[in-house]
């Protein structure tokens, strides 16, 4: 087992994002597309979250991953992986529904919102700091503002951000938190415990 404090998963993800952006000749084959997924191009369900529209898009999301990834990974790599999977699933399912107006989608930020929720939760469990509450409120406010106004606070990306993907990511993060915190409610069969697969470090910090 590798050193859990070394964020190898985060670094691997960063390498993956960069590689997909600069080494793949035609990224359009990796964009999330409900139509294409329906026609057997199922890889797009996952790959769409890890390719980006342009270098600026990649930069912002990579910077966010640099902060959020280690915050979670130094405590539990499994927890980080769970947040990633939940983000991919929740954002992807939303994009497949008729609620989504998009033909194509790309970018990690929907998934990053899952990581944000999990990161905030781990910090809150560890410190009970008001700062965590403030960041959570500000993050939710931003998403609510973007959804309600239909405009984006970010304007530098060539593809307009779709705020509902952020909301789906938040929801995915909440589910991970719920599974970890109250496994008996969500997955009674598996009976997860916090000191189980989601890491012992959190358990040690419980009050």
């Amino acid at each position: 087992m590798s050193n859990p404090r070394f964020p190898i998963l985060t670094i691997s993800l960063l390498a993956l994002l960069a590689g997909l952006h600069w080494l793949v000749p035609d990224r359009s084959l990796l964009w999330f597309s409900a139509d294409a997924i329906g026609q057997s191009e199922s890889w797009r369900f996952i790959s769409g979250h890890f390719v980006h529209a342009d270098a600026g898009h990649l930069l912002w999301n990579a910077l966010a991953l640099v902060i959020l990834g280690p915050l979670i990974e130094v405590r539990s790599r499994v927890l980080l992986a769970a947040a990633l999977v939940a983000g991919v699933i929740f954002v992807g399912v939303l994009l497949l529904t008729s609620f989504s107006p998009l033909d194509y989608y790309c970018g990690l930020s929907g998934v990053l919102n899952s990581l944000l929720v999990v990161a905030l939760w781990t910090e809150w469990r560890a410190s009970r700091s008001w700062l965590v509450i403030a960041v959570a409120c500000a993050s939710i406010s931003k998403i609510v503002f973007e959804i309600s106004t239909g405009s984006s606070i970010v304007t530098s990306v060539s593809w307009p951000p779709w705020a509902w993907s952020h909301a789906a990511g938040l929801f995915g993060g909440l589910v991970v938190v719920l599974v970890s915190e109250r496994p008996g409610w969500v997955l009674p069969v598996l009976e997860f415990r916090l000191n189980g697969p989601f890491g012992t470090a959190l358990a040690k910090r419980r009050p």
């Binding site: 912002w60 910077l63 966010a64 902060i67 930020s109 700062l131 970010v154 779709w162």
Partner: peptide, 27 residues
């Protein structure tokens, strides 16, 4: 334009995360 959309965190969200990071480092 064609129905493209993206997930972009952007500078404002990063500004929100920086205090979190600082808090974690201090801790």
């Amino acid at each position: 334009s064609h129905g493209n959309g993206s997930g972009a965190f952007g500078p404002w969200m990063l500004l929100l995360l920086l205090p979190l990071l600082a808090h974690r480092l201090a801790a």
